[in-house]
Amino acid sequence: MSKGIRITVVLALALGATACSGAPHPSAGGDKKAGTVVRSCGQSLSVPEVPSRAVTLDQSSTETLLALGMADRMAGTSYLKTSIAPRYRADYEKVPVLSPKTLTSEQLRAANPDLAVASFAELYSKDRVGTREELKESGLPTYVSAVDCPRHSRAGMTPFDLLFKDYENLGRMFRTENRAQKLIDSQKKQVQRAASVSKKVKGKPSVVWIYSVFEGAPYVAGKGGLPSEMSRLVGAENAFADVDEQWPEVSWEAVADRDPDLIVLGDIPELGQPGDSAEDKLRMLREDPVTSKLSAVRNKRVLTVPGIEMDPSVRSTHTLGLLADEMKDRGYAR
């Protein structure tokens, strides 16, 4: 297990930390009620007690907490991108939805949370829920997924390593380390299973990941994101890995130019814009005079996955599995 992020379980030292957060002092004896301190994206979060009113700022965070079985410790969820995965749906319905869109600063405070969890640091901005600094001043610890701040993690950690780091951190804060470890173990196994495919792959098939189509232009996975990593794991490569941006906007012509062996389409029908459903994207591929001639399109080497799983989340291993199966089914892997 990596110790890249400095995590300190403070027992005696918690006296100082809890005093800062304004919570009542634990008894001088230094008993079991001492809090947890977790590093998150440049801040050290002091969680004096197990959070009982956590608020999530986006769907991935929501699903991660639900995967850890924390539904009854959550005060609210927000910012749904697509429908909740079926396996979390029953739990999801137990938690109030504070807002279907991004949360406002007032909504977050009005929910009186004791922890805020987000997958993206940018959700903590003045025009959204407020900055992490000002929330800290009001005594609210704010967690940001390690995936979204690689700067604060040890170099060389893959997106999956960082995801697992999140489970570990959240497990500590919620005192459910066992459950977190179980989740890590099972997802690690899925990663290993997918990676085992790579040994049998012939050559280096290229993959184009199309996330969304906005005003006729596709947004594809660029360098460094989860899609590149998933491609690498299964022995393929991201066709746009040379573009130094996570989700660059490109043209159909550029897609055709890369002539990928496989095209992965993100399906986000709930966004409701033309080009958001995989069906729309496939139709655009077929109708475009250039891309329609691509071998991947003509030979239907197109894989559809839930769009949200292209972003790092507790569901991402699902897409990784789909990709591994696709590699086998299409005969890239023996």
Binding site: R109, A110, E137
Partner: peptide, 13 residues
């Protein structure tokens, strides 16, 4: 008031 409610009124509203 609780710090977050206080913050809602004093820092935001």
């Amino acid at each position: 008031l609780p710090p977050l409610v206080d913050s809602l009124i004093w820092d935001l509203r």
